[in-house]
């Protein structure tokens, strides 16, 4: 007999004692007291309580035990899930931090590459500029040379043309004789 039932029966007994005491008190004060019908109703009620207690004790206990275990399992699972969630959260937080770091690194890298590219473009542009400047200088020098050569040619042509004209006008038979004599003198070198 468990403490529960012991308590239960002490309770019943107590209630009945109070009922009979009250009945004696009430009868002593001139009342009729507890009748037999009431008595049997009380007995039936007590029996009903006993039977209910007897037959429902184990199922109720099992139910309560299962319920307790279920709640306990639920609590454990909740704690476990909370723990897992916490872990997951920490994991994602780490990932997020890592990602943030990667983004920062990427940003820095892009920034550095952009700077390097900018410098490279500037260097290339300067190089190209130098090359174009040099080419322009060469072309300009060539043009100057060409113009100078053309001027010289024109000058020479005009000079020679003038000289030819003067020679044609000035050459006399005696000059021709002198030229022929010089020619004959030069012919000795033909050998």
């Amino acid at each position: 007999m468990s403490k529960f039932f012991l308590g239960f029966w002490f309770g019943i007994f107590g209630i009945l004692s109070l009922a009979f005491s009250a009945n004696d008190l009430w009868a002593a004060s001139g009342g009729d007291g507890i009748t037999g019908e009431v008595f049997w109703q009380i007995i039936s009620f007590v029996l009903l309580l006993f039977l209910l207690t007897y037959f429902l004790k184990n199922p109720v206990r099992t139910f309560l035990k299962k319920r307790r275990e279920g709640i306990k399992n639920s609590l454990e699972q909740s704690a476990k899930k909370e723990e897992e969630s916490q872990k997951e959260f920490e994991n994602w937080d780490d990932k997020f931090n890592l990602l943030r770091q990667e983004v920062a690194d990427l940003h820095q890298k892009i920034s550095q590459e952009g700077e390097a590219e900018r410098k490279r473009i500037i260097a290339r542009a300067e190089e190209e500029g130098d090359r174009i400047r040099q080419q322009a200088q060469v072309v300009a020098e060539q043009e100057v040379k060409k113009a100078r050569a053309a001027l010289r040619k024109e000058m020479v042509d005009l000079s020679v043309e003038l000289a030819e004209k003067l020679l044609k006008e000035a050459t006399q038979p005696q000059d021709q004789g002198r030229l022929v004599r010089e020619y004959i003198g030069g012919m000795k070198e033909f050998r």
Binding site: R152, V156, D157, S159, V160, A163, E164, L167, K168, T171, D175, Q176, L179, V180, E182, Y183, G186, M187, F190
Partner: peptide
């Protein structure tokens, strides 16, 4: 213009003022 030249086959001995002027022009 002045002077003479002699041609023997394909060989020419040139002593003319025209050729001398041409040489002067070339040198200039």
């Amino acid at each position: 213009i002045g002077g003479v030249l002699t041609r023997i086959g394909n060989v020419i001995y040139d002593g003319t003022l025209k050729t001398q002027l041409a040489k002067v022009k070339e040198n200039l």
